[in-house]
């Protein structure tokens, strides 16, 4: 059963009361221990792999050395034969025979080390995938646990704070109202600023003698005089 299915089953099973643990703390600890064990095994397997690879390299060098040795001894045997020294050639041939045996043994070791290396690498890859999957599952479990505990804390907080939870629609309405108030205030203050800006400009214009001038007693008198004239 996948971890999701397990949690789903636990929730459906009625363990959804706030404060009631879906996840058994003890089994989580056991699971964590299993992951740590698996990681330890992995570390050990990697160390083993290093050892085997070192042995593989040694065996490979040995095979190379013996092969070269055989080649040169075959050369010597050829030279002995061409000199007609049958006895020496025979001695060399015996040496080659023993080298052949040694080569077979070393080649056998090399093959077995190579197989071991491949097997260990495969095992390590598989274990690493397994550990990663365990960790993912543990994360699912722990997150479920954490969300549940957080929900409990949040619910307790609301209850103890005695704050009544509004319905979603009421909450939205209030937030929109606040936003509207804010926008209105912003607009009002912009308008105010604009108006005071206009007023100060008019004052400046008046001071500079530009635009509509306030009628003065003198100008009124001038106007009356003009009519009489």
């Amino acid at each position: 059963m996948s971890i999701f299915k397990k949690i789903f089953t636990a929730i459906k099973g009625g363990a959804n009361e706030v404060g009631e643990a879906i996840v058994d703390a003890n089994s989580t600890r056991i699971f964590e221990q299993e992951i740590r064990d698996a990681e330890n095994h992995l570390t050990k397997a990697k160390r083993d792999l290093t050892d085997v690879m070192a042995k593989q390299m040694q065996a490979s060098r040995e095979v190379e050395r013996i092969t070269k040795d055989i080649a040169s001894h075959e050369d010597y045997a050829g030279q002995a034969l061409s000199k007609g020294d049958e006895a020496l050639a025979m001695e060399i041939a015996e040496k080659i025979a023993s080298l052949d045996t040694e080569l077979t043994t070393q080649q056998g070791s090399l093959d077995s080390f190579t197989t071991s290396v491949e097997r260990l690498k495969e095992l390590i890859k598989k274990s690493e995938r397994q550990v990663a999957d365990y960790k993912r599952q543990l994360s699912v479990v722990k997150t479920t646990d954490s969300v549940q505990k957080a929900t409990a804390a949040i619910t307790d907080n609301f209850v103890s704070g005695n704050s009544k939870l509004l319905s979603a629609k009421d909450s939205l309405e209030r937030i929109k109202q606040k936003q509207q108030n804010f926008d209105d205030r912003l607009k009002a203050s912009e308008q105010l600023q604009a108006e005071s800006g206009d007023a100060s400009l008019e004052a400046k214009l008046k001071a500079a003698g530009i635009g509509d001038q306030a009628s003065s007693a003198n100008s009124v008198l001038d106007r009356i005089k003009a009519k009489q004239g």
Partner: peptide
């Protein structure tokens, strides 16, 4: 918010009705 796990209640000014945990 105190509890078994630490939770932070975050309110955005003007949106207090919909806190984020």
């Amino acid at each position: 918010i105190a509890g078994e796990v630490d939770v932070l209640q975050i309110s955005i000014l003007g949106r207090e009705e919909l806190p984020i945990f």
